[in-house]
């Protein structure tokens, strides 16, 4: 037998659909672009600076932590970049640089790396980061105060803050259309409702997020807010107001469907999404915080492992599966 080539020997399947973690993350970033670009137009170069700093510092934190913990450095999969980007999107444009860096440190390291890195985080890392920041340095998250130096040609009030302080009369200052078009004060990536919806639809159509979660989340928001409004229209704002203000749309399309902290089976996805919507409105209407989205997400992340045990019987397991 003459000398022959060596061949690649591996296990089936020999084809792949071409998807990868890097590809998924790139698409998530593309989907977030409309909202970010609008935020930069709205809030100026400061917003761009916050987003860029958030992305780059998140990547640096990840690389540093992976180096220290002697893991392989996975900076090329854009995982940290997405976490940083989402963290940045939830910040106001005027936030000091060190808040951004501390935020991404918490997001990437405490939110994900300490649990074992990608895929092992029980909570959405970006939400952890922002939750810690908003508890520790709450003043920076008072969007009205933070954006005081700006002059807008629309009602320069954070809608949820206004609702909290002035009661339901404040909602009349904001029309649904202007909220959708981004005429509101808020975080860089959360004000442009239409952009977030376009990005979210893109992710859903490309299959990068699970549409059931987003749809259920929206349903949870609308149903709960409508019930509150019906019970007392004097005290509670309507569903559309809640849907297009605060972090709601960001949560619906980017935060709640984060893969490792959300369920994968149908019924759990629906419960998870609806719970998210319900909790958001409950915290906003009854709780102490103006925007309950962050805590709503942390709560549904918490119940994810339990509800995801509700799953269909496997093939041939109909009879005696305990």
């Amino acid at each position: 037998m003459h000398k022959q080539n060596k061949f690649t020997v591996s296990h089936a399947p020999f084809w792949h659909d071409g998807d990868s973690i890097g590809e998924t993350n790139k698409n998530i970033m593309v989907a977030a672009l409309p909202a970010i670009v609008f935020g930069v137009f709205q809030f100026g170069m400061a917003a761009l600076g916050v987003i860029c700093l958030a992305i780059s510092s998140a990547m640096a934190w990840e690389a540093l932590f992976q180096f220290i913990s002697k893991r392989s450095i996975q900076i090329g999969d854009y995982n940290a970049a997405v976490i940083g980007m989402l963290t940045g999107m939830m910040l106001p444009a005027t936030v000091p640089w060190w808040v951004v860096i501390v935020g991404t440190l918490v997001s990437v390291v405490l939110g994900q790396q300490v649990f074992g890195g990608i895929g092992a985080n029980p909570f959405n890392p970006a939400v952890i980061g922002i939750a810690v920041l908003s508890v520790s340095w709450g003043t920076y998250f008072d969007f009205d105060a933070a954006l005081l130096s700006y002059e807008f040609d629309f009602t320069a009030l954070a809608p949820l803050g206004a609702l909290d302080h002035q009661g339901v009369a404040a909602t009349e200052l904001f029309s649904t259309q202007s909220l959708l078009m981004g005429n509101q004060v808020g975080a860089i990536g959360s004000v442009f409702g239409l952009g977030l919806i376009i990005g979210g639809l893109y992710l859903i159509l490309r299959g990068y997020i699970r549409w059931e979660i987003s749809v259920a989340y929206i349903a949870g928001i609308i149903i709960t807010a409508a019930l509150f409004q019906m019970s007392n229209p004097e005290a509670y704002a309507g569903p559309m107001f809640h849907l297009f203000t605060g972090y709601t749309l960001l949560a619906v399309f980017f935060l709640a469907p984060e893969s490792s902290s959300s369920p994968v089976n149908l019924i759990p996805m629906l419960i998870y999404g609806i719970m998210g919507g319900v909790m958001t409105i409950l915290i906003r209407n009854i709780g102490a915080y103006a925007d309950g989205t962050l805590y709503a997400i942390l709560i549904i992340n918490l119940i994810n492992p339990v509800i995801d045990m509700i799953r269909p019987k496997a093939l041939g397991k109909g009879v005696n599966n305990a």
Binding site: I21, A120, V264, A314
Partner: peptide
């Protein structure tokens, strides 16, 4: 030849969606 990786599962759920036998 598509490569394989040593990444952990990121829980994206695509396998659960496609599995004809309903395996988690």
């Amino acid at each position: 030849i598509p490569g394989v990786s040593d990444y952990p599962c990121i829980n994206c759920g695509k396998c659960v969606r496609i599995c004809p036998a309903g395996v988690p």
